[in-house]
């Protein structure tokens, strides 16, 4: 069996805004070829963490390495799907224009796109089923379609590690299954997917490994070993409505029928 390389490692990362720590001594190593979920309550630093891993935010202390190298040397190997709400969708650009941004590189900004770029862009759009809308202005798309455009853009980057920030928020059922299908395909190609997620119900369905975050790393590992009562309480303690959800989740586990279903899903 092929030995697995470490894809992303973070060592003692601390990030603070106005002296208020958002991430505190975060330390982990993520292996390549996995679908890894980063979960935690609102304001637990999930987005800050992936931005730090990608070198968008410089940590106040600690360091990040991607494939054992400093981030600036491996930029071409990472792709990013930002939160959908983080951009202005009224921007004058078509689906094609936005996906083409996936072909931009720091050192090709002053060139024009070549045939290969255009081919990859069209293929990426096809992969997410957006070809009928290729020339549509991005503001005229539904939420799910906009999310697919972002996915296509990250596919066009042809990277090895994909960072996705809440890709399942506000999307329709069709887009959700399209994203899941893509995730499986990419995993089979040996890609690493690091996905910020907040819905506890679906965690075991989507991910191989989970990093439970609340400013500090509560726990990191395979889904079943991380989602324990103690860990969830440590992460979500005090948030009542979330606690009931956690309760539901725990209850579900206690039912043998559900248990079977879970096992079936995690096997497939």
């Amino acid at each position: 069996m092929k030995e697995r390389k470490v894809a992303v490692e973070a060592h003692n990362i601390t990030v603070a805004y106005d002296r208020q720590p958002v991430l505190w001594e975060v330390d982990f190593e993520m292996n390549e070829g996995n679908i890894i979920g980063i979960i935690g309550p609102n304001g637990s630093g999930k987005t800050t963490l992936i931005k730090t891993l990608m070198g968008v935010i410089t940590p106040d202390s600690g360091y990040v390495e991607v494939f054992g190298a400093e981030i600036n040397r491996v930029r071409d190997q990472i792709a990013y799907v930002p939160q959908r709400e983080s951009v202005d969708w009224d921007f004058p650009a078509s689906v094609y224009d936005v996906v083409m941004m996936g072909r931009f590189r720091k050192n090709n900004l002053f060139h024009r796109s070549n045939t290969n770029d255009r081919k990859i862009v069209r293929e990426s759009i096809e992969k997410v089923g957006m070809t009928p809308y290729i020339n549509r202005q991005i503001g005229q798309l539904s939420g799910g379609q906009q999310q697919r455009v972002f996915l296509a853009r990250s596919l066009a980057q042809e990277a090895d590690i994909y960072f996705m920030d809440e890709p399942f928020v506000g999307v329709d059922a069709a887009t959700e299954s399209a994203i899941l299908e893509l995730m499986t395909t990419m995993k089979n190609l040996g890609k690493t997917l690091i996905i910020v997620h907040h819905d506890l119900q679906t965690v075991s369905e989507y991910f191989d490994e989970v990093l439970l975050l609340n400013t500090r790393v509560i726990d990191y590992g395979p889904v079943n070993s991380v989602l324990t009562d103690d860990n969830l309480k440590a992460a979500y303690g005090g948030q009542l409505n979330v606690l009931t959800k956690v309760g539901d989740l725990l209850k579900k586990r206690e039912f043998p029928i559900r248990e079977k279903e879970f096992k079936k899903r995690s096997k497939s």
Binding site: K51, M54, G55, V56, N72, R75, I78, Y80, P82, S86, V87, D88, F91, A93, D97, V98, M101, F104, R105, K106, N108, L109, F110, F163
Partner: peptide
Amino acid sequence: GFRGWQITTFNPDYAASMGI
């Protein structure tokens, strides 16, 4: 610099993730 203006205006964080 058209591509640079496009990407840094539309999605600065994404541009930063590319090292721009």
